[in-house]
Amino acid sequence: MNSLAKTIPEWLEVCHLDDLVMGSGVAVLVKGKAVAIFAIGSNDFKLYAISHKDPFSNADVLAHGIVCEGNGVWTVASPIYKQHFRLDTGECLEDPTVTVNTWPIRLRGNLVEINTSDEVS
């Protein structure tokens, strides 16, 4: 493991603001990994990045699920078997033993960046 990479924030540009779909998700490839990026809210929107791979079906699909809100918590429902994953923590609501990866994400100008420095790969 490269311990240096863990400490130095590594923000990577992944797409343009125009590529996002408000209220829904898109997928990007980052270092060979598929990441789902969600933009929630309209004017004052918030960005989330979680794994695109659905751990229950092993298919790259999470960006294309329906975004849901329940008691203030935002989730995405997998389009395959419909489990919900929290956008902020990656936790599966139906099975708390399952969690998908999440990444820090930010908007710099019109560019969307995610931080892969915590990546343990």
Binding site: I40, G65, I66, V67, C68, E69, G70, W74, A77
Partner: peptide, 8 residues
Amino acid sequence: GGGCEICK
């Protein structure tokens, strides 16, 4: 709220 996979 924000809607869900049922109402949307």
